[in-house]
Each structure stands twice: as C-alpha cells, then as structure tokens.
Design a protein around this nucleic acid. Sequence first.
DNA 1: AGCACTGATGTCAGGGACTGTCATCGCGTA
DNA 2: TACGCGATGACAGTCCCTGACATCAGTGCT
Lengths: 188, 188
Amino acid sequence: MGRWEPNTRERLARAALELFGERGYEQTTVAEIARRAGLTERTYFRHYADKREVLFGGSDVLRKVFATAVAEAPASDAPIDVVAAGLEAVAAVFPGRETARQRQSVVGSHPELQERELIKLATLSAAVTEALHARGVADPTAALAAEAGIAVFKIGYERWIAPAEHRELADLLHASLTELKAVTAGSR
Amino acid sequence: MGRWEPNTRERLARAALELFGERGYEQTTVAEIARRAGLTERTYFRHYADKREVLFGGSDVLRKVFATAVAEAPASDAPIDVVAAGLEAVAAVFPGRETARQRQSVVGSHPELQERELIKLATLSAAVTEALHARGVADPTAALAAEAGIAVFKIGYERWIAPAEHRELADLLHASLTELKAVTAGSR
DNA sequence: AGCACTGATGTCAGGGACTGTCATCGCGTA
DNA sequence: TACGCGATGACAGTCCCTGACATCAGTGCT
C-alpha cells in the first residue's frame, strides 16, 4: 500500500509545510517529508527539483493565469489596464490565506527561500512582459508595465497575509495599483 | 608553505573564476578551487559561506560605496539626484570589464547563481532605501527611488559588459538614468 | 483469464556541499 | 623563551541530490 495514492505532489507539499512549521526548515530532511507523505526520498526528487521547490509549486499556475489574462484582455485596453486584468485573475484563483501565512513565515526566515521567491517573481515578470509583447506592446513600455504589475502584486500580497488583515486579495491588489498610479503621477 | 600567504579571499575568488571558466560551474568542486588557491576545502568555507558566494565578494563594497555616496550627497539634492550620485560613486570603484564579463558568463548560465544575484540586488536596494530614510526621505518615495536606482544600475551594467561595448560604465549609467526619466515622464 | 506494455515508485550506491571538532602552525607579546 | 591568539589542516559525519536498475499497479490487447 502507499503506492498509487493520488495527488502525490500535493501530499508532499502539505507534508513539507507541516514539518517546516513544526521543526523549522533546516531541521527537516527531505527523507522526513517523503516519509510523512508515504513516499521515498527518491520519489520526492522526481516531483520537485530540490528541497526548496516544494514551497513554490503554485508559481506555475500563477504565471499561466496572469499571462492568459493578459493575452485575453480587450485589445483596446492600455498596458496598465491589461496588467490590472491579470492581477484580478490572479486574485480569483489564489488558495487560502492561512496556508499563505504559514508558507510566508517559513520563507521569510530563510534567505535561500527568499532567493527562490525572487527568481520566481522575476520569471513571472518576464512572462508578463512576453505576453504584452504578443499584444504588440513595445519593449520599454512592456517591461516597465510588467515590473509595475509585479511590484503591485508583491505589495498587495504582503498586505493580504499581514496579521489582522481581513480585506480580500482582489481589493488589496486594486488598492495597491491605485496607490502606485498616484505615486508615479504625483508632483515629485 | 602555503600557510600565511596573503589575500586568501582574493586568491580563492580568482581560482574559482578561472576554474568556472575552464570546466564550468557544476563541473568544478569546492575542493578544486581551494587546491588551486593552495588551501583546503575546509578553509574555503571559512571565507565564503557556500560555493556560490565566491562570485559575489564585491557586493559588500558595492553596497557600502552606494550607501555612503547617498549619505554624503548635498542636502539640497532631490532623491533622484542623490541616487544619481550613488551611481557615479559606484562607477568609480568598479573593477575591470573583462573580469566582469567572465563572471557574467558564468552567472548567466546557472539559475542558482542568478538567484544569488537577485538577492544581492534586493539587499542593495534595501540599503539605499535606508540611506535615503536617514536623509529624511519618507517611505514610498525612498523605496521607489532606490528601486529605480537599482533598475538603472542593472541596465547600465548589462550594457557595459555587452560584447563590443566600449563606453565607460559611468557614461552608460548616466544614459540609462536619463532614459528612465524620459520614460516615466513620457505622455503615457 | 492471460499477456505485454507503460509509467510511477522503491532500492541501492555514490558524489559533492557543508559543518563540528580538535590538532597544528605561524606570529606577536610579555 | 614561554605563552596566547588567530588562521589553517585533518577528519568524520550529515544531508542534498543523482544515476541505474528492479518492482509494482494499471491499461489495452488477445
């Protein structure tokens, strides 16, 4: 038994998040994660490239959702509005806030995990830039709009998982975008 | 012999860059780097926290130079001009272009090294933000000015090490900043 | 039912990154 | 000279990660 249980990746991700919360990231071995998921260390590495990656399984979905929304936005929309549509789409598919908080408390206290998060965001930015290119947006504008979108996502997401925060992600992303517009348009 | 040779860190860094260029990053072991520098693997890890860090020894200097220049800029300067002063100071202390190109050819082809570069830039951005705070610049402005400065540095540096590029780093940083100003001020 | 085929998993061996511990060495100083 | 201090060497050990091969569950075909 144990073989052929479904949702292997998800079981591994859940086991990892639990163990990281219980003992800490460094004190948890990959073998332990696999064992809690009813699997072997070798099998873990067939689903995740390394020990860190298990915390970032959602970034693929995030990238696809964002890029698809950008690609399918009305042709008449300005780049910044296209990015806003991407942010809305992202907010709609995001998992629970408690899981996000657990995850962030682990990532936030380990530089090697922050490194991974940074490169995921950079990849996301590149994907949005490319999606804008496909709409005919030229390069300085496309890259800047993408960077701005990622910055808004970052800030809105941080707010969303902050303690005692109850507003929805969609609202916080919208508010953050509005503030960015105000700052860049301000008389500075 | 071998003990008490001076410039241990620099010797390790040079040996690493040579070996990474000759055999590639993954095909080089830390023991080999140490041996070429006339040292032991264990000693390597007393000077650099991990295998990647040996390629980023200059980031400390970079951060200090940038932050100091920001702190010492004329009090009347606007935030963006303060950042410009920091960029000038950075350009003045940068090592040779050929070394930078070697280094970049290694970093550019290994995601784990790009991760490290991203977190170094994030740290630099945070240091600049803090230096601006110390000048009395408030937070949305300080963080945005710092981010803008880092973006300019990134782009200018990329141009500087591009093949067939002969202009000086200072000129390229200046040009990039000018272009950023044009983009953000443009009728978009 | 019996059979081959495919894909996911288990098992095993091994290299390389990184750490803790203790001994040793070179140098300055009393 | 004796002593102390900081840097290095030597050694053992853990964990991350990989390659190679065997094994099992399910599928389609006969």
